[in-house]
Amino acid sequence: MANRIPRGRGFLERTTASFVDALEHTFYAEETAGADGLLQRIHPRVKLLGILALIVPAAAARSFKVIGSLFILAVLLAALSQVSFGVLLKRVWIAVLLFTGVIAFPAPFVTEGRVIGRLPWLGWTFTSQGLVSAGYLVLRVETATTLCVLLVLTTPWINVLKALRVLRVPVVMVTILGMTYRYVFLMLETAHDMFESRRSRMVGELTGSERRRVAAASAGVLMSKTFDLSSDVYLAMQSRGFRGEVYLLDESRMQRFDWIILAGFTLVSATAFWWGR
């Protein structure tokens, strides 16, 4: 989408651009999920269980080699699944590094142990144990997030939700999440149209109080539309026999290939556990 608007151009422009960005992210995810890659060919249930099986040893291992190997495996899976490294770098690796980095930053300075250096000017000392702790945290989060993002980027969201049934997530929860996913786009488009129509009739910048008024009014209108829509959706469900219970029909079936992949994930997970004890 071409109407990305630079920061600092005004409240309405930025809000509209953020709606477009949100839609763009989703379209990218759906496009990747439809690509012909390794992970895309695997049954969602196997993928969910397999990714979980890799995340657990990554979180539990006490060895950089193990966590690093799992991270490399995640990168390899991304390459085989046509997931762009640029997207992973921008949306996952740098974002996680910044976020986790803030949390891990104090660790080298407050963890007791062998002092290996001193910060210039500030004079704070840092320890090797502290650096290792911070390194573990960052690498574990990077690995786990990369694996999670791979699951989401290579699987249509509704299939991820249906796969949650294997973890005994109730049908009603899966259905509500599915409906939320479906209507979030409708509301996003409605909000986008509302802001676009306001923007098309405006000249100049809004003051702070005007921005707040526009935001409050738009939120109110959107909420009212949401209420109307939800009551109509409920009627539509009732008209097709909804009586408080929801049922799912999962079309997909696991193939021999999926069982082999599941066995592979289990083997890798068990090895990582044993190696990273």
Binding site: G178, Y181, Y183, A236, M237, R240, G241, F242, Y247, L249
Partner: peptide, 15 residues
């Protein structure tokens, strides 16, 4: 209101 066309058409019969 369902996430896919298949789920939508299946809703009534499932109910």
């Amino acid at each position: 209101f369902s996430a896919t066309v298949f789920d939508e058409v299946a809703f009534g019969p499932l109910q």
